[in-house]
Design a protein around this nucleic acid. Structure first.
Ligand SMILES: [Mn+2]
Ligand SMILES: [Mn+2]
Ligand SMILES: [Mn+2]
Ligand SMILES: [Mn+2]
Lengths: 219, 219
DNA sequence: TTTTATTTTTAGACTAATCAAAATTTATTT
DNA sequence: AAATAAATTTTGATTAGTCTAAAAATAAAA
């Protein structure tokens, strides 16, 4: 049985290696966990001992198949709990992450499978992130940052690349959420801002930051 | 912020002092937590330092008002989660305790108030135990162990005084649960067994143990 | 290819929670 | 009231997780 802390390290390594699949450095882990490099080294040795990571001194780590499986299930639990909090308890998408950080460590396979059923087998969480299946498969979708779209295109919002409360609340205020339709009315090359029509109701100028962090697909 | 362990000690002291309201001894706590008396002493000193218990060397402890409030809220969370697991996720009453033991430590007042609403402000948990309100009030009901009832009485099952899986499963097999109606057909004084009619459907002989642990009220 | 800078590990120490064994206090018998 | 028994605390250790500071390895620059 893994501790809370061990689980968090595995999830952290998973997130850091998700895209590249390269080994991740001690310092990179220390940075995101907010702990010292010395603590990270200690933990990596422990995880290596348990064969959850492949660790080589001074060379960084990557997850073993077992380690990856555990990390994936943590992500599954985290995202299913987020769906529950939003869909069933009426939380908004900027309020759920911290609570899900705690709930993801509850140890019961049956619980999470029942929850999955109860929620209607959702494929994506409230932030548009895919929920891995019990066997660890992620649904892949066509989606691009909105700044890659062209003038005149009609888009649907599929996700966000930033999860900060401030960012999510800002989108809320603009009535932009997962599923919102956007039409690109103008692209301003000088500052990368875009004027978009939101859900065919109102026009809004969006800054470069938002345009890069909104994930969309053409419809 | 209290640790899991500190919370568990408070809940344990609460349960041990609930009825009598007397000070509880180090050994009594050690017995139910399964830890050594030495560990209990250490923890009591820590809780006293935080003013959550009133502790006197060699004299035992009782909860301070703050300590009692925290313990009550833990009980509230535990029981609300049990209702959720049974009512919403379809768990049976013998499966929920261990999961609720973990869930009760999730730290979010908003979560538990939303959950309470979502569940329809339940007053009792799946075992018939009262769910304290956010302000710490327990609903009190008239209820007695079934062995105190008389021949011919019609009763409704309100609770159980034992929560073991084996006991709860045994009741399940007899179709006895919270709300079940029972009519006392015979009381056998020689062995304290009773013959009861269950939900006006079938007759069953119940042994002394069950008769003492079933909490009922006349209707 | 040395030298310097950066990264990573090791060494030593701290807190929380735990235990067994020894010491102390309280309770119970003689 | 003294002796004995039982309960409780203290002492000294252990494990998990953490840290800072020193040492070692690797990477970058001269
Ligand atoms: Mn999240
Ligand atoms: Mn999410
Ligand atoms: Mn319970
Ligand atoms: Mn219960």
């Amino acid at each position: 049985m893994l501790s809370f802390t061990e689980e968090n390290y595995l999830k952290c390594i998973f997130k850091l290696t998700e895209k590249t699949n390269h080994r991740v450095s001690t310092n990179a882990i220390a940075k995101v966990t907010g702990s010292s490099a010395a603590s990270v080294t200690d933990m990596l040795k422990k995880l290596a001992e348990k064969e959850l990571v492949d660790y080589a001194r001074y060379k960084g780590v990557h997850l073993s198949p077992t380690g990856r499986h555990i990390a994936t299930q943590l992500v599954r639990k985290h995202r299913l709990w987020e769906v529950f909090l939003v869909d069933k308890l009426g939380f908004s998408w900027d309020e759920v992450h911290d609570i899900a950080e705690e709930l993801e460590h509850i140890k019961s396979d049956l619980l999470i499978e029942r929850m999955d059923q109860f929620l209607g087998l959702p494929k994506f969480d409230p932030h548009g992130d895919p929920i891995p299946t019990a066997s660890g498969k992620f649904t892949i979708r066509q989606q691009v940052p909105m700044n890659k779209a062209s003038q005149g295109q009609r888009l649907v919002v599929l996700g966000v690349q930033e999860h900060s409360k401030a960012f999510l609340r800002y989108l809320d205020n603009l009535s932009i959420h997962i599923g919102t339709q956007l039409v690109i009315q103008e692209k301003n090359s000088f500052d990368q801002s875009m004027k978009v029509l939101i859900d065919d109701k109102h026009s809004q100028l969006l800054g470069e930051h938002i345009c890069k962090k909104l994930l969309v697909n053409e419809i």
